[in-house]
Each structure stands twice: as C-alpha cells, then as structure tokens.
Simulated assay, not measured.
Amino acid sequence: MADRNQAAESPEKKAAGIYAASLVKSGDAVGLGTGSTVAYTIRELGRRVREENLDIVGVVTSYQSEAIAIEAGVPLTTLAQTPKLTIAIDGTDQFDENLYAIKGGGAAHTREKIVSMSADRFVVVSDPAKKAKTLSIFVPIEVMPFGKELVMKSLKEIGGDPVLRAAAKKDGPVITDNGNFIIDCTFGEIKNPLEMAAKLSQIPGVVEHGIFMNVDEVVIGKADGTVEVIRK
C-alpha cells in the first residue's frame, strides 16, 4: 500500500535526506523535524535500524513526523526523558548565505526550534531552490489566539504585512499542534535577521517565530543524487 504521508518523489530532497541520515551513529539521540525532505531522513533511519541494527532514539516535532517514524520503525523518546540530543535534522523553507533560515511552512516551527536548540548539532536538509542571498519569504509566526489582534497590529507597526493562515480543508484558521494560530508575515528582504528576530520575540502573544539562527550546516541535494554541504 502506498504511504499516504509520502509525496511525489524528489531526487534532490531524497539525496539530502538520505545523506543526513548517514550522519547519525549508534548511541545518538536524534531530533526529527517536519516536512517532505526530512521524511526521507526518517525513513532511511528506519531502514538502518532494521538492517544495520542502528541503536538510536528520536524526538519528533509534529504528529506527522511521529506517524512516519512509527511506520518506519524508529524508536521514539521525549525531551522529558532525553533532554540533550546529539543531532537534530530538519528541513527549511529558505536559507541565506549566513545560514539563517526561515521555517514554519508546516506550522511546526515552535517545536522544531525547541528540538533544534536541544541538540549539539543542527543539520538542515534542502533542495537548491531554497537557497537565497537574502531571506525574503514570509515569516511564519505562531501566536496565542487571545493575542491575535495585538500581534497583527504590532507586526504592521514594524513594517510587516501579516495574514492569518487559513486551513485548507476546514473553515477557519490553521491550528498548530500546540493549539495556536499561525500568522504569515511578509517583510520583503530581511537584511538583518537577528534584529528582526529580536523584534518579533518582543511582541506579546507571539509564541515563536520562524527565523532560525542556530543552523550548523545545510545539506543541499542535487538532481543527480549528489549533495553539497555548507557549514558555518
């Protein structure tokens, strides 16, 4: 039976995802991100567990990743049980030449940031289209429903164009795994991600924003199955 969680195969994403799985060794506690590229990583880790007796535990960042990991046979734990992770692997929506990244297209960036900050090493898997000189796509922002109006007003005051993310198959907004809303806010080119991140974090009602400043390396998959690795 076809895996309902698996999208049409992308050679670039597959190359990046499988390479990232090769970085994991027995004894590691692994943060498992969310998205189509890291799904290849999770499935490859499951294969290694079955065929190579890889001894690992994983911490997932979403219900989607949990379902893929369980199906793949990756043993799971929690941050409560394993607060220190060896490596975290996740996807990205865009990253710049300084390895600052924007994440949250899948509305899981709050948990993704917590997991990535709990790891000694944070590896991002990507395809070439996600690379940019300057961050410029919308920034996903998880907000408490009670604070939505204040957050929208505050985002406009700092030059943003905020839009409440609507659900695709239900009336109303997207609800995160944490029970919150997502506001997608466009700022144009973000020439100073550190400054923008600080401004977003100071807005009352913001749970977490999608600007990541802790990426250690990016694995870019190519159509021919090779990868390019960029490190700080």
Rank of each mutant, 00 (worst) to 15 (best):
D3M: 03
R4T: 08
Q6F: 14
Q6T: 12
A7I: 10
G17T: 05
S22M: 12
L23N: 11
L23D: 08
S26K: 07
A29N: 13
L32H: 07
G33H: 10
T34W: 13
G35Y: 13
T37D: 09
T37M: 06
A39S: 15
A39D: 07
T41F: 10
E51T: 14
E51P: 10
E52N: 08
E52A: 13
V57D: 06
V60G: 09
T61D: 11
Q64P: 00
E66L: 13
I68N: 08
V74I: 02
P75Y: 08
L76M: 10
T77L: 03
P83F: 05
K84N: 11
K84L: 13
K84C: 07
K84Y: 11
I89H: 10
G91S: 14
F95I: 01
D96F: 12
L99N: 11
I102N: 06
G106F: 14
G106M: 11
G106C: 13
H109S: 11
R111W: 10
I114V: 15
S116A: 14
S116P: 05
M117H: 13
D120R: 14
R121L: 15
F122P: 02
F122Q: 02
S126V: 02
P128D: 00
K131W: 12
I137Q: 13
V139R: 00
P140S: 05
V143L: 02
M144F: 12
L150C: 04
V151W: 09
G159P: 00
G159V: 07
G159N: 03
G159L: 07
P162C: 04
A166C: 00
T176M: 04
F181S: 01
I183C: 00
C185Y: 00
F187M: 01
G188I: 02
K191E: 12
P193D: 08
L194M: 11
E195N: 05
A197L: 06
A198M: 14
A198D: 14
A198Q: 15
P204L: 09
V207Q: 01
V207H: 00
G210R: 05
F212R: 01
N214P: 02
N214A: 06
V215R: 04
E217Y: 04
G221Q: 08
R231G: 06
R231I: 04
